[in-house]
């Protein structure tokens, strides 16, 4: 506890020192304030963002909510599709071998490279962003569900079979629970992918959302607002991934594998 406190203090001191050095470098003219807005200017920008908003009327909170809403829609759609499909493919080894190259290839396609195509198909509106997020999350989730179901420790399957458990009952009582940690890891990775994609997708064809905010602020030479947007995106990602880790500890208290799948 004491060691943790000390480490925290050191971290805070380092970050504080870095901010101070930055502030001083700007004051003495080593860094241009337009390119490196100092902490004081960022703080003023934050007040503006949370009251009048940027562009006027759209506060940082509504940008954040819009982004979260988009990610969640795409993410949940992907989960709803990928989990049942992955459970099915994983259960049938032949189906897995048949589809494996397609899954691998679709997963290698950089999600954002689909942007022009999806715009042609669905226009430049909301649906396009959600489809892109869903695409990215889907393949990550699908390959993890398949792997989770297929690579269950054979020892556990043997132990269950020694009690005469087989077929669908074996799948339900052993394969499924054994695959849960991997499925959970997939869900966390997929959410990371979703956040990655949304930032890119929001840079084109919208003025709402955090990705749009940081891009829009740049065109108005408001780099401090860009930085605030980046920090909010970072904190959001961090909070959600810690939240999911906590949820996993709560739902799968038996799984000690959390540290291994952390990254």
């Amino acid at each position: 506890m004491r060691a943790r406190l000390a480490r925290f203090a050191v971290s805070a001191a380092v970050i504080g020192a870095a901010l101070l050095a930055w502030e001083l470098a700007v004051r003495f003219g080593y860094l241009k304030p337009y390119q490196f807005p100092p902490a004081s200017r960022i703080a003023r920008g934050f007040v503006e963002l949370s009251t009048t908003g940027f562009p006027t009327g759209v506060s940082i909170w509504s940008h954040t909510l819009v982004t979260i809403g988009r990610v969640l829609q795409g993410y949940l759609a992907a989960l709803v599709l990928a989990i049942p499909l992955g459970l099915l493919i994983g259960a049938l080894p032949f189906l897995d071998r048949l589809t494996a190259p397609v899954v691998v290839f679709c997963r290698s396609i950089a999600t954002l490279s689909l942007l022009p195509l999806v715009i042609v198909w669905f226009g430049a509106g909301e649906l396009t962003k959600i489809v892109l997020i869903a695409y990215g999350c889907f393949w990550t989730m699908l390959s993890n569900v398949i792997a989770g179901v297929r690579y269950v420790d054979p020892m556990l399957i043997r132990a269950a079979r020694s009690f005469g458990v087989a077929g669908i009952e074996l799948y339900r009582t052993v394969v499924l629970p054994a695959a849960l940690p991997r499925i959970f890891a997939g869900a966390r990775m997929a959410l990371g992918v979703g956040f990655m994609v949304i930032v890119g997708a929001e840079m084109i064809g919208t003025i709402e959302g955090l990705g749009a905010l940081i891009m829009e602020a740049r065109t108005f030479y408001r780099s401090e607002i860009t930085m605030i947007g980046m920090l909010v995106i970072g904190m959001l990602g961090f909070a959600i991934s810690s939240g999911l880790a906590g949820l996993e500890r709560l739902l799968l208290p038996w799984s000690g594998s959390l540290d291994e799948v952390r990254r």
Partner: peptide, 14 residues
Amino acid sequence: QGVVFQQHALFPWL
């Protein structure tokens, strides 16, 4: 037949 396996054959979620 009842079988006792080498280690790690207990179901970790139970």
